[in-house]
């Protein structure tokens, strides 16, 4: 069986991710071990944060590539939203604490939705990662049901998204990649989130994302996943 580009990409990403895992876990160990002294513990945490960013980027790249090839399949099933939030907190709490950010969630414990757990978890993880860079001190996850959609919201108390990023998913426009050098922010994460939501369908309805500011919870950026 010949190796094609997708296989090569996939296997190098696999390797890189194993290295990232090791770096990340070793860093955690160093931070947690009282015998280690850092001149500035903040530095170690920032490293940790960057490792996660690299990881999110890699994963998004590969997923988008596979999506283009029509080879990305998703596993939609009923999931409990609080369980999802608890996992997101577990995966991000250490870094948030180190960065001095309070990460919390709010939702009805009986609220269920239909989605691919690992995919949506990774979208939320990367959104949290993004919010960590732009918030002042708080990130809040919440969820509700609206118009037959499950709406998952990630809000922060920062300056909010720049006007060019605002996006309403039901409008007939699609996100495109910006020149990264121009803004310092690519939209890779948003595009990834939009594509993943778009794969979530029920009958005629499909998922989308909304990028807004100041939605009533926290004053900064507000990112919403709408899942049918």
């Amino acid at each position: 069986m010949a190796m094609d580009f997708s296989d090569m990409l996939a296997s190098s990403i696999h390797d890189i991710k194993n290295s990232l895992s090791l770096i990340s876990t070793t860093l955690s160990g160093m931070i947690d071990n009282p015998k280690n002294t850092f001149a500035d513990t903040h530095q170690a945490t920032l490293l940790q944060h960057q490792v996660q960013r690299v990881n999110h980027n890699l994963m998004q790249l590969l997923s988008l590539y596979k999506l283009g090839e029509g080879a990305l399949s998703i596993d939609i099933d009923e999931q409990n939203v609080e369980d999802l939030f608890i996992e997101c907190l577990a995966n991000n709490q250490t870094i948030c604490q180190a960065l001095g950010v309070t990460l919390s969630y709010e939702c009805d414990p009986m609220l269920n939705g239909f989605f691919d757990l690992e995919m949506i978890r990774s979208v939320i993880d990367s959104t949290i990662g993004n919010a960590q860079r732009y918030c002042k001190a708080r990130i809040q996850l919440s969820a509700r049901e609206e118009d037959g959609f499950l709406v998952i919201r990630v809000e922060d108390d920062g300056e909010g998204f720049p006007a060019a990023f605002l996006h309403h998913g039901t409008a007939d426009e699609h996100l495109t990649l910006d020149q990264p050098r121009a803004t310092g922010r690519t939209r890779l994460g948003l595009i990834f989130a939009e594509k993943i939501c778009d794969l979530h369908r029920s009958g005629e309805r499909k998922g989308h994302i909304d990028v807004k500011n100041n939605c009533g919870g926290l004053p900064g950026g507000c990112f919403e996943l709408w899942l049918p």
Binding site: L20, S21, S24, S28, I86, A90, T94, E118
Partner: peptide, 15 residues
């Protein structure tokens, strides 16, 4: 269950 790498110790525990 499937767990996507990398994951933190806390996430593994929760799962």
């Amino acid at each position: 269950s499937f767990l996507t790498k990398p994951f933190t110790a806390e996430l593994l525990k929760t799962r």
